[in-house]
Simulated assay, not measured.
Amino acid sequence: MNLSWRTMDRATLDAAYSNGDPPADFETRSAAFYAAHPGADLDVRYGPAPRERFDFFPVSGGKQSRAPTFVFVHGGYWQSCDKDLCAFVAEGPLARGMNVVVAEYTLAPTASMTQIVSEIGRLLDVLVEQGHTTLVLGGHSAGGHLTAMHRYHPAVKYALPVSGLFDLEPISAGGLNDKLGLSAEEITRFSPMRHIAHGAPMVVTVGNAELPELIRHSYDYAHGCADAGEHVTYLPVPGADHFSILYDLADPDGLQLSALAQLMQA
Rank of each mutant, 00 (worst) to 15 (best):
Q64E: 15
G199A: 14
G131M: 12
L42P: 07
L168C: 01
Y158E: 01
N19L: 15
D82N: 15
L260N: 04
E129D: 15
G39D: 14
A95D: 06
H37N: 13
A266Q: 09
A67D: 06
D178N: 12
Q265W: 08
S4L: 14
L94K: 13
P238E: 05
A148G: 13
G254L: 13
P58K: 12
V203T: 02
P170A: 12
Y17T: 11
K83T: 07
D241N: 13
Q262S: 11
Q64I: 15
F33W: 08
L214I: 14
L176N: 01
T12Y: 12
A184P: 07
A95Y: 07
K83I: 04
R66F: 13
L127M: 08
L211S: 05
A111G: 09
P201L: 06
S112Q: 06
A240F: 06
A148M: 13
G254S: 05
A250P: 01
V126L: 12
A40G: 07
V204R: 00
W78F: 09
L246H: 03
H37Y: 03
A87Y: 07
A11K: 11
W5D: 06
R96Y: 03
F190P: 00
P238R: 05
S191A: 06
H140M: 09
G199W: 00
A228F: 11
V89T: 08
A222M: 03
H153W: 01
L127I: 07
G39T: 10
Q130Y: 14
L257M: 12
S4V: 11
P50T: 13
E230S: 10
D251I: 13
S183V: 02
L85N: 09
V101I: 15
P48C: 11
F166E: 00
R216G: 02
L3G: 08
M113N: 00
A197D: 12
A259E: 04
L135K: 05
E27R: 15
D125T: 05
V44Q: 13
E129N: 10
H37A: 06
P23H: 13
M193R: 13
D167W: 06
N2Q: 12
Q265C: 09
D220W: 00
D9L: 09
A266K: 06
H153V: 00
S65K: 15
D167H: 10
Y234L: 12
G39C: 12
S183G: 11
P109C: 09
P50V: 09
L160S: 12
A49S: 14
G75T: 00
